[in-house]
């Protein structure tokens, strides 16, 4: 019958190969496995290679500057006249400017970010949390140049008109925008670390009669402190390394604000100096090398912050695993 024929045809062919591998097959398998593994390793190692190359090339271009001009002037003088006949490379005001706007941004961002993180992890239901999280993700997704655009064309005129300032592009403007940009980073890392604190601590606190505020403030946040510190350091990294916003919004005036609390003065940051000056320099000129020297400082700063944040993240992970 037809049916039987079909059955006959689809019967699997007998495989007569012996189950034991021959020596060649065994070697082939071994070679392929390790070759494949090595090529995977080689490709993955490209990340390490890129990091090394970044350090190498930035240092290679920047170190001659320190060799030729020394580091005393660079770190102590405020005179930045790289294109003068007798060029001066005093980056003090620039470095201070970077730190200045970063700290101002953190002062604005950290309270709001931690409150938001507490809100997301402690107060609301899962549903609302799923609604708020995309908002934070979108805030993180807005390109920095769009933030800069907003700072220049919307915020700056507003500040100028509202507070009667001589210019709207100043440290205040840059700090506000940097704070907004650092917020998502701080919120998400801090929220993770707060969520990672186990239920037992909270329940013990509530069981002793503490209110929600007391539980969060005296129990949960101290327990999650290393994660929160890591979050703040990561936010700081984001703020100090940001280029477009400070370039567009900080006013680019080479000065240290005096009195120091006057946020409405224009400042100049390291990133903005690199971005703004690079177009006007000749290759391998002292000016060109000085910009790479600023790059070295940025790189070292962020690298150190990275190590700090990783240390705290690791200890946060250990803490939560203990429970």
């Amino acid at each position: 019958m037809e049916y039987n024929k079909v059955q006959m045809n689809t019967e699997p062919k007998a495989d007569n190969r012996s189950l034991a591998l021959t020596a060649l097959e065994d070697f082939k398998g071994f070679a392929f496995y390790h070759l494949g593994r090595f090529s995977l390793f080689a490709v993955s190692f490209s990340t390490v290679l890129i990091v090394l190359l970044i350090f190498f090339f930035v240092f290679q271009q920047g170190l001659p500057f320190f060799k030729n001009f020394g580091i005393t002037e660079f770190f102590t003088s405020k005179q930045w006249y790289p294109e003068a006949r007798k060029p001066e490379f005093g980056a003090l005001a620039i470095i201070v400017g970077s730190i200045y706007v970063t700290i101002a941004a953190l002062v604005l961002a950290v309270p709001a970010a931690i409150l938001t993180a507490v809100f997301l992890s402690e107060i609301v239901s899962h549903k609302i949390r799923n609604l708020v999280k995309p908002v934070i993700e979108l805030l993180a997704a807005i390109p920095s140049v769009a933030y800069g655009f907003f700072a220049v064309l919307v915020l700056a005129p507003f500040l100028q008109a509202e507070f009667g300032l001589s210019t709207g592009t100043n440290a205040l403007n840059a700090s506000i925008i940097l704070a907004i940009m650092a917020l998502p980073t701080i919120v998400s890392v801090a929220e993770d670390s707060i969520t990672a604190i186990g239920r037992d601590l909270r329940e013990a606190s509530y069981g002793l009669g503490a209110t929600r505020f007391e539980t969060i403030f005296f129990v949960v946040i101290p327990a999650a402190h290393s994660g929160i510190i890591a979050a703040i350091v990561l936010g700081m990294m984001r703020a100090i390394g940001e280029t477009m916003v400070v370039w567009m919004a900080s006013g680019n005036a080479n000065q240290i604000p005096s009195p120091w609390w006057d946020l409405t003065q224009s400042v100049r940051t390291m990133t903005a100096t690199i971005a703004g000056d690079m177009g006007e320099t000749a290759k391998s000129s002292p000016h060109y090398q000085s910009l790479f020297a600023i790059g070295i400082i940025l790189l070292v700063m962020t690298f150190l912050m990275n190590i700090i944040s990783e240390y705290f993240l690791a200890s946060a992970g250990k803490n939560s695993r203990k429970k």
């Binding site: 990340t47 890129i50 990091v51 970044i54 930035v58 920095s144 990561l234 990294m237 100090i240 390394g241 940001e242 280029t243 990133t271 690199i274 971005a275 790059g295 940025l298 790189l299 962020t302 690298f303 912050m305 990275n306």
Partner: peptide
């Protein structure tokens, strides 16, 4: 790499 400033 994730922490290197974009201008660098």
């Amino acid at each position: 790499l994730a922490g290197v400033p974009s201008i660098v």
